[in-house]
Every structure is written in C-alpha cells, then in structure tokens.
Design a protein around this nucleic acid. Structure first.
Length: 281
DNA sequence: AAAAGTGGACAAATTACGTCA
DNA sequence: GGTGACGTAATTTGTCCACTT
C-alpha cells in the first residue's frame, strides 16, 4: 500500500506484520450482551506486537500533527472521519457556547493546546440519567442529547465511550474481588475436607468393623436402610466425623446483572453410616 | 454472486488536563 | 507554591459490520 511505497519493504517484511485476530470485540458484538468470562489472564495486547516500532513512529508524527490541528489524524482511514466530524459539527458549534468552541486555545506562540472541558453537574447528571436508560446511543439520541447539553455530539459520544469503559472496569474489579473470596472459601473448604479424609483414614485403621469379628450368621440387615446391623451406638464414628458428614457448597456469581453470570456448584455429600442410621438400626 | 473499498461505530489503550490533598 | 495521585475528557489505533461499487 502507501506504506510500502514510503518505507523499506525489507523492513516491513522483517517485522512480520501478520494480522492479529482480536476476537474479543467480535465476541462481544455477536452476543446480545457483554459476556464476562471468569478468568484472569495476563497477555500481551495485539498493539504490542511486532508492529510496535512502526506504530510508534506513526504515532509520533501523528502527535506532532494533531497538537497543531487539534482534530486531524495521521492515519489515512481516520482523517476522513475527523474531517467529517469537524465538518458536520462545525455548523453546530456555531450554536454552542464559547466555552465548548474553545476546546483548543492558542498560546502566545500560536501553538494550540488541548483544553479539557469540565462538565457541569447538570450535564453530568443528565448524561448519567441517559446512560441508565441506554449505554449506547444512536445518532439521533446523540444529537438530541448534545443539543440538550449544549455540547458537540462528539463530546457526548466520547463521554459514553468513557462511561462504558469505566463501568466495565468497575465490574471487573467487583468480579475480581468476588473470585478472590470464592478462592478463599474453596481453599478453606479444601483444607477442611483434607482433614476429614485424614481423620477417616485414621478411624479406618484403628477401628476394625465390628461385624468382622462376628460369625456371618449373627449379622442382620436393616430393612429400612439396608445396612448391616450391629454398629450403631457403640461406634459413633469418633470425634472428627460428627457434624462434618454432609457438605453442601453452592456459589453463584452474577455480578448484579444478567451478563457475566456463572456458577460453581459443589455438593459433596458424605453419609456417615454411623450417624445416618435409621430408627430400626 | 463475489471481491474490494468505504464509512460508521465501538473497545482498548493512551495521553493530557484539572483538581485536590 | 510545588508535587504527586487521581478522575476523566480527549485522542489514537485496530477491528468488525453494513453498505456500495
């Protein structure tokens, strides 16, 4: 493309600009809502790949350009969009306040710098209210909201983008915290069960089943629970078994919304024949 | 009908400004 | 007054999708 014309092609090939698949966005868009996978991953981002040097170079040039123009972009694909935004919204800007128009001010040397807008409480409140109803805006909603707030549509769009990002970040933190708690709970549970196993093993070694010492003819079968009789009462199962014979653990993670729900259901049941005897035993 | 090009929308990452302790 | 932390507006980049050529 144009890039190859102006750059050393050998370098480009050497850098290996293979397309990196970012399925995340795709997955999000295909699903009806945002899906949260309960996994903690640590990986390099696609933008941090082999093309980094090239991107950084373009980025540097871009910054030098944008710091003067305010809205233009070095990327050819984006110039169109920014120009469109500027062209379309420049007419609207005439209707907006001075404060909004002067997002970029010029210093003594004529160099324009980005000036940050602080939204008023009223503007923030209205945006928040709107976000509650719909986290994304269609063009008409954006226009209406911008008019209502005396802002440019682009500013409304940016606010919603940032708001979505903040929401997601917050949700991720909440989920992370919850998973930590789940992990702690399961670790405790694991320790307790290990202990119980150990106690059962000890019990098995020290207490040979009573019926083993009896002649077969003296053994009776409980008609209710179909267990061999003669064990209740005298052998209560020892200290460790009492109270720990049945475990039921259910963890449900929902995060407060329909998205990102998953569940861990663990229901190990340990029936202790000694404490589970029927009345007939 | 299939391929290429284009524009819009979005997420993610990042930058940079304003505020406050 | 200087400074670092923090919140957040704004920008950049990459991707997907729908539509057009």
């Amino acid at each position: 493309m144009g890039f190859d014309d102006s750059c050393n092609t050998g370098l480009v090939l050497g850098l290996g600009l293979s397309p990196t698949s970012n399925n995340y966005n795709n997955a999000i868009k295909r699903s009806s809502g945002y899906k949260f996978d309960p996994s903690l991953t640590l990986s390099l981002s696609a933008s941090g790949g082999p093309s980094m040097t090239v991107v950084a170079g373009a980025d540097l040039l871009c910054r030098q350009t944008s710091s003067h123009s305010g809205v233009s972009s070095f990327s050819t694909g984006r110039v169109v969009k920014r120009e469109r935004d500027g062209g379309e919204e420049s007419r609207e800007e005439e209707e907006t306040t001075e404060r909004v128009i002067s997002d970029y001010h010029e210093d003594e040397e004529g160099v324009s710098a980005r000036k940050k807008l602080r939204l008023t409480k009223e503007q923030s409140a209205l945006l928040e209210e709107s976000f509650k109803h719909h986290s994304t805006l269609n063009p008409k909603q954006k226009q209406d909201l911008a008019r209502q707030l005396n802002l440019r549509p682009r500013q409304v769009e940016v606010w919603f983008q940032n708001r979505r990002a903040r929401t997601k970040l917050k949700q991720t933190e909440v989920d992370c915290e919850f998973l930590k708690k789940c992990c702690e709970t399961l670790t405790d549970e694991n320790i307790r069960l290990q202990k119980e196993i150990q106690e059962l093993k000890t019990l098995k070694l020290t207490h040979q089943p009573f019926y083993m010492h009896m002649p077969a003819s003296t053994l009776t079968m409980c008609p209710s629970c179909e267990r061999i009789g003669g064990r209740s009462g005298s052998d209560s199962g020892g200290e460790g078994i009492r109270g720990g014979s049945s475990v039921a653990t259910t963890v449900v993670v929902d995060g407060g919304t329909s998205k990102g729900a998953f569940s861990i259901s663990s229901k190990p049941h340990f029936f202790n024949p000694c404490t589970n005897s029927s009345a007939a035993c």
